[in-house]
């Protein structure tokens, strides 16, 4: 597979496919980062609050890094991409749009999400697109910690008490179909795979299922076997909660988009 050494070397259909991939990854990171930041000051204990908030910042940092690549590819500047778009212009999956729910739901969501991100980053570390491979290699340490964090929490709450187990199972039942939506097939998958930029979504999904299943099993949680994936996010069709989130997130920015901070 020929390496694509620079962003400038991206052309035609491959370039278009990479732009779509980056929007998907960046928007997922931005929105789950915002959702998790809603726990800041509200998590069950101070230590958990700090760790979860810090991870939310990690995700937003990843989003910014992807938006910067998009900007280098001719898209608008990172702030405008984060704060200046309408809901239908976002390419995030429904999983990240859902309200934060209870602590168990946010932990399960973050765990399922981080496992997906880890699978994707592992694939992208071998990407033919060198600048993307270099960036994702840098981000993998943070994601590794996120997985350790998620695994530790899921195992404990899954196995702690009848009440905690029931809450975690309910959270998993709700989150799982949306988590499958992270791997929504797109019209760009074939181009990305052919160019060696990114593994096909269905293959990533299989790797993800192999990654999350043993942890959920150790936590005494059952994957809902009738889960049907919730698609639409990758083509801009979102649950109404995204518009509500964006209204809040963009409130200050929209007062004066040109303000300097």
């Amino acid at each position: 597979m020929d390496k694509i050494e620079t962003l400038d070397a991206l052309t035609g259909a491959t370039r278009e496919a990479v732009v779509h991939l980056l929007y998907r990854m960046a928007d997922d990171e931005l929105i789950i980062g915002h959702r998790n930041s809603e726990w800041t000051g509200h998590a069950p204990i101070l230590e958990a609050d700090i760790a979860f908030s810090s991870m939310a910042q990690d995700e937003m940092g990843h989003a910014q890094a992807y938006y910067e690549i998009l900007h280098a590819l001719g898209e608008r500047d990172p702030d405008t991409l984060a704060f200046g778009r309408k809901p239908r212009e976002y390419r995030c999956a429904s999983l990240v749009c859902l309200p934060k729910g209870d602590w168990g739901f946010s932990l399960i969501r973050q765990f399922l999400y981080d496992a997906a991100e880890q699978v994707r980053l592992t694939a992208l570390a071998e990407s033919s697109l060198v600048p993307l491979a270099q960036l994702t290699t840098k981000l993998r340490g943070e994601e590794k910690y996120h997985m350790m964090h998620g695994r530790t929490w899921v195992l404990r709450l899954g196995n702690a008490t009848t009440e905690s187990h029931a809450k975690m199972q309910a959270a998993l039942d709700r989150a799982y179909p949306h988590a499958l939506g992270l791997f929504e097939p797109t019209e760009f998958d074939e181009t990305l795979a052919q160019a060696g930029v990114c593994t096909r979504e269905e293959e990533l999904q299989k790797q993800w299922e192999s990654a999350v299943a043993p942890v959920l099993d150790d936590a005494g949680l059952e994957v809902p076997d009738s889960a049907r994936p919730v698609f639409g996010g990758r083509v801009g069709k979102h649950p109404p909660e995204l518009a509500e989130l964006l209204n809040q997130m963009q409130m200050v920015y929209s007062i004066d988009p040109a303000a300097k901070w």
Binding site: E47, A51, Y145, H149, W153, R156
Partner: peptide, 20 residues
């Protein structure tokens, strides 16, 4: 110092508490 239910969780939470 840090509050945690066990040593594994103390490592997880302590990492962000003191090493970020």
């Amino acid at each position: 110092s840090i509050h945690a239910p066990d040593a594994d969780m103390a490592l997880i939470l302590g990492k962000e508490q003191y090493c970020r």
